[in-house]
Amino acid sequence: MDEGAALELPYGGTPGGPVGRPRSLWSDAWRELRRNPVFLVSALLILFLVVISLWPQLIVSTDPLACDLGKSQQGSEPGHPFGYDTQGCDVYARTVYGARASVTVGICATLGVALLGGIAGGLAGFFGGWADAVLSRTADVFFGIPVVLGGLVFLSVVTGTTVWPVVGFIVLLGWPQIARIARGAVLTAKEADYVQAARALGAGNTRLLLRHVAPNAVAPVIVVATIALGTYIALEATLSFLGVGLRPPTVSWGIDISNAAPQIRNAPHMLLWPAGALSLTVLAFIMLGDAVRDALDPRLR
């Protein structure tokens, strides 16, 4: 086949074969993810965590709040493989039920951060001017607040036994990071030739933003948000450990780790299992974020 004939083949076509449709970034990314063992392992582990968060009764039949002081700090026994904590509660049941709070906080906080930061940063980057200046200065203020110190102050005032105060705090301090990522991605996308061509053909700002800029600027936001999800789960456990995050009777890995820390020498199993579950969960989400980043960034292939 000569050079002229080769130039006439559409993208994805082969000589003598059917013409294929051009592959998009998302189809290429999905193809890379399916072949990445890191993604498969982390996705299966996260799926398992989500399932037991929704239906913990599938793998445990013990009430995590049912305690027997007569079995305080006892080791494993048939039907209770992780032993008992200081109050005589089943550590296995509390470890399983603790996944619900951590996964709920991580997913809800990530969605809130991605929506708030993505919309604010995207609009500021697209329109520029005073909106961009206000966003940048506001983000600088929030970046200057230490996360743990901010949590101690904010959550000591906004009390509650549900996950929503913790989610609200994470969204409050987490959106500036996503906003900056979204702003930079939009600034790059809106200078592309296809956007300038659409503008020259009379496309309005709404159509440009929704049809041309946003779909090509959302990938960095997804990558950063996916990696940050594991960080938010660890932050919830840290705040609960310090006594300002989730509070009893909510079952949380951070609460169990805090209660087990003084007894680590006498009953290390109380600390081992919730801390191991927390570490495995954070690792799974960070591995998933790394795999998504590698798939969505063509320069890393």
Rank of each mutant, 00 (worst) to 15 (best):
V153C: 07
P165H: 05
P274R: 00
R293W: 06
G75L: 07
A93D: 07
V224N: 05
L123Q: 05
P78N: 10
R207S: 13
I178D: 01
Y11Q: 15
F126K: 11
G276F: 10
G125C: 11
L69R: 07
D256G: 01
R35P: 07
L47V: 13
I181H: 02
G106C: 04
Y97M: 10
C67Y: 10
G83A: 12
F127M: 11
A5V: 05
L271V: 04
A185E: 09
Q196Y: 02
E236T: 01
T95C: 15
Q263W: 04
L272E: 02
S42N: 08
V213D: 03
I233W: 00
P146T: 03
L152V: 11
L152Y: 00
A228V: 00
S136K: 09
A6Q: 09
R34N: 13
D256T: 09
L296P: 04
V157M: 05
T159P: 02
P248H: 12
L246S: 02
T110A: 07
L58P: 06
V153R: 08
L288V: 09
G174I: 02
V113L: 11
A66Y: 11
V218D: 02
V292L: 15
S42R: 03
S279N: 00
G128A: 05
W164D: 05
L9F: 10
R293A: 11
G160A: 13
L209E: 01
V38I: 13
F154P: 02
V134K: 05
A200L: 13
D90G: 11
S136A: 14
V171D: 03
L47E: 04
A114I: 11
P56N: 10
G243H: 04
L187A: 10
D294L: 10
V141P: 04
P248Y: 06
L272R: 08
L123F: 15
P249N: 12
G174L: 11
A114E: 13
L173R: 13
V60D: 09
I178H: 03
G243F: 01
A234C: 03
D85G: 06
A237K: 03
N259K: 12
L45S: 07
C89F: 09
A5I: 02
V96P: 03
R35C: 05
G151R: 01
L44R: 07
W273H: 09
D28W: 15
I181G: 14
A185R: 12
G243R: 02
L116V: 14
L229D: 03
Y92L: 10
T226R: 04
L201V: 08
G98L: 08
A277R: 01
L54G: 14
V244T: 02
